[in-house]
Amino acid sequence: MRKLLLITRPQYEPTTHYLFYWNKKVIDFARKKKVDIIDLHRKRANKKEFTSVVVKRQPNLILFNGHGSSDSINGQDDKVLVKTGENEDLLKDKIIYALSCETAKVLGPKSVSMGTISYLGYDEVFIFYYSKDKVNRPLEDKVAELFLEPSNQVAISLLKGHTTREANQRSKASFLKNIQQLSTTESSETYLVRFLVWDMVHQVCLGDQNAQI
């Protein structure tokens, strides 16, 4: 049976703009792997459409991109898609990766307790740097790449068939590679290391560590 990926990609300000473009790489990779994709981008990243797709199509993997808080993940224009105590049951029997701030603090554990197979995300704010002169061409931004490529490794590893634990570890290893490179060379970007370390240590994998899509 073909696997189904659901991805949310709101785009309305600089942070979501960058995540929107960098996740195109994940979508391209999923296509190569012959995974079916439902891409809820821009205005389609709303609660009504998200709920309908999840209920009807039951995706194996959901990738959230957007703002969030400890107990909720948002879509277009900062409107809530999933909130603890309201509709986290939508995540039941699925593997989740949320590139969203702090959702692994409350929403992640709560959804796992209600049947989510595995929840990968961040238990703190996700920080990244970007070059002001690359905002119109985010995929050419080498500064943002240092943060967003390691994050993409979670989804890419899962799509390759790795377990959730392995996906988490491979992503952290990718952060570490960038940290080590910036620290051991005479890079002018060593100031980024502290923020890469922050993202790396706050990325967590909750629930089943051996799950695969």
């Binding site: 600089p14 969030g68 701030c101 920080i127 740097y129 070059s131 002169d133």
Partner: peptide, 11 residues
């Protein structure tokens, strides 16, 4: 010449 995104706190 760079900006930092700190999630919901802003850029």
């Amino acid at each position: 010449d760079v900006s930092i995104s700190i999630g919901s706190l802003g850029n």
